[in-house]
């Protein structure tokens, strides 16, 4: 009886319930802390250590030599700049494509909107790696596109741009990313009250003015979410460059991966990872300030 009574007291006490409810999220808390925070923190510490390339024991701590590597080797710095450039262009092109599709589905498709939306989302299921493999067959000097163009006599020799290079990395990343970005933009376009657009027309605005002054500003939350969705992974991308980048198309992520895997230079890899982390952090912070947490949640 006394156990029952104390259980009941535990159940009803207001302060206790806040702690008891904490139990529900405790597993998630622990998981994120153990699997995410502690490892990332250990990388942060590692980035200030100098490891012996042979034994992988700490020789020197703390040092900034790992961070300095980026500035000593100009090709590393150039790689980071190139990655930033690719991330920006891929973000711009894929958001633009996604916007066109989302706009079309939201405003021009009258029936079966969600089926059309689903059609564009279907490739997710095929897995990213498989699509990359497909693009590997499409591109290249003996690839499908060049072969077809040659066959139909449209060109006399293979187009270099469609080989394995930086342009291909941009093309493939854009093609694989834009379908992912349709949904957040579509959601924010669907939320716009159609009366607002009619009002704008009624007030004498041209379709283009209506778009620039009403539709586009109101869809910005979705656009920001889309930007965040594509920019961050692209900064860290290393799979697509390895598959279709050839020798000229590799990115900063490939450098980190190589340091981790082949060179066993974990200390340098750690410092470069921290650089990437800082860029990510800045990007998230800037967009977070523009859209806020609630909008981000709503667009998911």
């Amino acid at each position: 009886m006394s156990i029952k009574k104390s259980f009941r007291n535990f159940f009803t006490a207001q302060t206790n319930s806040r702690l008891k409810d904490l139990l529900l999220v405790l597993p998630t808390y622990l998981w994120i802390i153990i699997v995410f925070f502690i490892p990332v923190f250990s990388v942060l510490i590692l980035s200030f250590a100098e490891l012996s390339p042979v034994t992988r024991t700490v020789v020197n701590f703390p040092v900034l030599s790992n961070y300095a590597k980026l500035f000593i080797r100009t090709d590393y710095a150039r790689l980071l700049l190139r990655t930033f450039f690719i991330a920006v262009t891929v973000t711009a092109s894929s958001v633009l494509f996604a916007y066109v599709v989302a706009y079309f589905i939201a405003f021009r498709v009258l029936k079966n909107k969600y089926t059309v939306l689903f059609l564009f989302q279907a490739p997710y299921f095929a897995t990213y790696m498989l699509i990359l493999l497909a693009w590997r067959l499409m591109l290249g000097s003996t690839g499908v596109i060049n072969s077809l163009l040659l066959y139909f006599g449209l060109i006399s020799e293979p187009i270099k741009l469609l080989g394995y290079n930086l342009f291909s990395v941009w093309l493939v990343l854009t093609a694989t990313w834009f379908p992912w970005l349709i949904l957040p933009i579509f959601v924010s376009l669907e939320k716009i009250d159609r009366v607002l657009l009619e009002a704008s027309d009624d007030l004498g605005a041209s379709p283009i003015t209506t778009f620039l002054k009403v539709t586009f500003p109101l869809s910005l939350p979705g656009v920001f979410v889309a930007v965040l969705f594509v920019f961050i992974p692209t900064m860290g991308e290393f799979i697509a460059p390895a598959v279709v980048g050839g020798r000229t198309g590799i990115l900063f992520g490939n450098l980190i991966y190589d340091f981790f895997l082949k060179g066993f230079r974990w200390d340098v890899a750690a410092a470069f990872t921290v650089y990437l982390l800082i860029i990510t952090f800045i990007a998230v912070f800037l967009l977070y300030r523009r859209i806020g947490f609630r909008k981000l949640m709503e667009s998911l």
């Binding site: 702690l19 999220v25 994120i32 490892p39 990332v40 590692l46 750690a270």
Partner: peptide, 28 residues
Amino acid sequence: FAGKKIFTGLLLMPMVTPYIIMGFSLMS
């Protein structure tokens, strides 16, 4: 529950971190 805001912030972290950072950190 106690610390709800901290939790939501924490929850979003893995969503906005490039996989390469998580992969390298966790495996090393």
